[in-house]
Design a protein around this nucleic acid. Structure first.
Lengths: 250, 250
DNA sequence: CGGCTACTTGACGACGCTCAAGGCTTGTGG
DNA sequence: CCACAAGCCTTGAGCGTCGTCAAGTAGCCG
């Protein structure tokens, strides 16, 4: 317990200074208009921000472990997280990757139902579950938005269940690339260039495959001239339409 | 569209008479204390019930189709539904089975994101999405409970993603049996006897397997003396502990 | 009784996994 | 600046689990 705590919260550098200055950390937040907090009025956001701590988690560091008490919820401000479940023998299923604007804490139970770990260095804003829940009573718009997030999340995981249960390796990877392409476009970046922050291992555990199969399938897509693979895990989508078709099950 | 409507709502027998009698259909509802409606006060329930229609869907009849406008939400009163997604070539993933007390409509988007079909003859209470949403504004407890349902649902599908992505056939089936056993116990029935309302095909599409594999795996569990298979899809769990162990990944 | 559907079982094959080796990049220390 | 180690990724060979195809059985209903 003590060493775990040092691992998860060991690197909280700047938040207190910021608050001491009387400036809400939310004021300069990059994701405040897309994240959960977009539901808050300026005054509400001010109140909200009093409970908020900004923390930075280095790449490959654990943030939460399944089974631990659900003490905090998080907004991702910058970077990338992976959320996953483990079997006792080490088999792992990554249930999702979280990017800026995403909320970690939709499942509200006594203990965390998943583990989470930083993929790249990740900046988060954190608030205690207790405080967060308390805001509900006075801010119905927050609860509404939280429900909207949960609803969208359920739609997403339904798609992912279809992928895991019924799609081939090529279809899975094509789906993965399509999703990231769409997210890139939504973030205002080009839809045909994708930077993968995560390793082949992570992709495999997200898609229910092995590293080797992911690697082979990348090669297959490359040889079919559907993608090109640059340095630094950068993928160029050469035929977005065809990739979408494969993703949908040809 | 017209013929679909006749299929989904073609068998609506009793609701209007009931309302005419001035008796809320909720008054005699079997699931009103476990379903979403448990969040409502008697007065609220009265108001709520004015918008409610009870309908009965025969076994194997479609209720909603993915892509159709999201016009209604449902509570299952009696029976069993399957909710699923299809690929264009017919591959199917059942994302869940719904039983009495379960809510159909957690995903709130313009169109249905899944199809649903009755497994056995199913009694449902239906309300228009529009009316349902309108209740939120005046009944915060309803929204709170809806969020609770969504939260629990997300926890469930995370488990199911682990199953689909990482578990073996035997582990999947053992997990399925464990879940149904727990539900039976929660409903006050013995935990070691399970009646499967759904076909082997449905189980296969829920677990990401084929009928044949499901059948073979049932046989394997039977030969290992972990279960016995009676008539009428009745399964006796002979070693609940061992089944749970297998479900968890041995 | 015949036909239908659901389920079971067998034989075979394929897709993806396991095991293994090798290449490439990155960081570190001599 | 280079040598070396450690990861990460790729590729190959062989295997196994589960899918496919097919036949057979059992229960149900007209």
């Amino acid at each position: 317990m003590p060493d775990r705590k040092s691992k998860t919260t060991g690197t909280l550098p700047s938040p207190i200074p910021r608050r001491r200055l009387g400036v809400s950390p939310c004021a300069a937040c990059d994701v405040r208009d897309s994240a959960l907090c977009a539901a808050l009025s300026p005054i509400e956001r001010m109140r909200f921000s009093e409970g908020v701590t900004i923390l930075t988690v280095p790449a490959a560091s654990p943030l939460i472990d399944e089974g631990e008490p659900d003490l905090y919820v998080f907004n991702v401000v910058e970077g990338c997280l992976k959320v996953y479940k483990l079997l006792s023998d080490g088999r792992r299923q990554i249930t999702g990757f979280l990017f800026p604007g995403d909320f970690l804490g939709l499942v509200n139970s006594a203990d965390y139902t998943c583990s989470a770990e930083a993929v790249t260095e990740t900046r988060l804003c954190r608030i205690s579950r207790k405080q967060f829940d308390a805001f509900f009573d006075t801010m119905p718009s927050l609860e509404r938005r939280l429900y909207t997030f949960a609803s969208e999340r359920i739609a997403e995981v339904q798609e992912h269940m279809l992928l895991l249960g019924r799609k081939t390796a090529a279809e899975r990877l094509a789906t993965f690339l399509s999703i990231l392409s769409r997210r890139a476009a939504e973030a205002g970046r080009p839809a045909d260039v994708i930077v993968l922050p995560m390793s082949r291992d992570d992709i495999a555990d997200y898609l229910g495959l092995t590293t080797e199969t992911v690697s082979r399938t990348f090669s297959k897509l490359r040889k079919a001239k559907l993608i090109s693979i640059d340095k630094d895990r950068k993928i160029r989508l050469l035929d977005l339409e065809k990739i979408s078709e494969i993703a949908a099950g040809s």
